[in-house]
């Protein structure tokens, strides 16, 4: 079983003196992961909102048509 290689949180964050290089790389990694998973959701939300607007417009048109006919 592998052991934890650091003495506590402070030592872990210090990364043996390489904190800047290690953490900035992992930060960029986190950004890439987040963007790749979040961007498609934003895009999908936009598509649904566009469709919703069209549905409402069509519903409004139909209602108008019905009242005009009666």
């Amino acid at each position: 079983m592998p052991e934890f290689q650091f003495d506590g949180m402070q030592d872990f964050l210090a990364m043996g003196g390489y904190a800047f290089y290690v953490w900035i790389s992992y930060l960029f990694f986190a950004l890439v992961v987040a963007w790749n998973l979040i961007q498609p959701r934003i895009e999908r939300r936009k598509l649904l909102q566009l469709h919703k607007a069209r549905m409402q417009r069509e519903a409004g048109l139909n209602k108008q048509r019905v009242t005009e006919q009666s």
Partner: peptide, 19 residues
């Protein structure tokens, strides 16, 4: 990041390898 042993030359810097 936490459990793999440090490299004998690069210390903890080598952990960038995992990305």
């Amino acid at each position: 990041l936490g459990f793999a042993p440090p490299d004998y030359q690069m210390g903890d810097n080598y952990r960038i390898i995992y990305i």
